[in-house]
Amino acid sequence: MKKKLVSLFLAATMTCSMIAGATTVFAEDNAEDTTAEETVELAEPSTDEGYTIGISVLNLTGQFFIQLVDAAQNEADATGCTLMTNSCDSDSAKQITALENFISAGCDAIIVCAVDSEAAKPVIAKAKEEGIAVVCLTSTVDGYDAYIGCEEYVLGYTQGCAVGQRIAEMYGTEEEVQAATLNYDLMESVIARKEGIIAGVQEYAPNVKFVADATAADQEEGMSNTENFLQANPDLKVVCGVSDGAALGAYQAFKAAGMTDSEQYLIAGIDATDEALKLIDEGTIYQVSVSQNPTATGKALVDTAIAVVNKASYPKDSLFDLQAVTSANVKDYITE
């Protein structure tokens, strides 16, 4: 049950002062193609057909993962593959069980967004012993064949800089502006994302004071925690979420409180999901997101898994091409 690789994704490199060395980047359509720093070249491709690929993500409530898995499913269908999907609800034990099930089911490849990279090491080692290709998303696990993700700090910093610039336009850089963060500190790698947000905001708006912080995995938690923020901090003006899912909940909480003036309030997220883009385009208080292009990423994950199993060439490590999305460029990201 093997299938030829139908398509390989385009890779490009980007240089960033925060990232040591060059790495492969998923580029926008108008980006310049360059050669990957490390490309794995294997033997001639197999001619068998019908790969089975397992994918385990943190959840299927956040819009980023919903869109990513939908795109992965579409690509699997287009290439004649079977996709087995797992949402582990950010529970490492559940994820490990799912990965073991993928191995037992005879998957040719596994795509995993690891809740706990250290805890996943033994089951990934078992997969490799069975000859199963392993493609990691967001965080790496020892023994992986390919990685697609981003520098978490830079991801947060990209949002933070755009937010800081907008706050400076709204309030200047002297008047104190209260802000809050919706984090996902349950994953160590995402802690750096929040740190990047704060650093980026304060670089352009040093007058911002972060007065509240809470964990939010999805819109429901984002709304509930933001309601608590507003009760404790009635002067709160800004909420920065580490995902659009969490930030959309903050938007709903502000809206319910009648805080809808985009010259006074600002909500920001990450992922550039369809709902977030719509709100940015409409000129609401939801004013910033960061594009990781979940649709292109979902497709690339499947194509990369096929390339590894098919013994074709593929980039070992790839980074998203991160772009802050605001009212100035949101039209470039909305698809009809």
Rank of each mutant, 00 (worst) to 15 (best):
V211F: 07
D303G: 13
M187I: 15
E221K: 11
I306Y: 01
S291E: 01
N293Y: 08
V325T: 04
L279D: 06
D317K: 15
L301C: 11
V201T: 04
G196S: 05
P315E: 07
S243R: 00
G245M: 02
L319A: 09
E203F: 09
G258W: 00
E263G: 13
A272D: 04
N207I: 13
S243E: 02
L319Y: 15
K194Q: 14
A247P: 07
A307N: 01
D261V: 07
E221I: 08
M187G: 03
L236C: 13
D218E: 15
V190W: 02
E188Y: 11
A300T: 09
G298N: 02
F210M: 02
D303Q: 15
P315T: 03
P206W: 06
L279I: 11
K311E: 14
R193W: 06
S291K: 10
E220M: 12
A324H: 00
A212I: 03
V325G: 05
K299G: 10
V238S: 02
V238E: 01
V242I: 10
V201R: 00
V238L: 04
E263N: 15
D261W: 06
T215H: 11
S313T: 10
L248C: 03
D317Q: 11
N233T: 13
I306R: 14
D321Q: 13
G200C: 01
D321M: 15
A324M: 08
E188F: 12
K209S: 14
L277V: 02
T215Y: 07
N225W: 01
L319G: 11
A199T: 14
Y184E: 10
A257M: 06
V208H: 05
A268H: 02
E263L: 04
I197N: 09
T273R: 02
S289H: 00
A256L: 08
M187P: 11
A192Y: 07
K278W: 08
A253V: 07
D281T: 13
T326A: 05
F254R: 01
I306H: 04
N293F: 03
V239P: 06
E263A: 13
L301N: 00
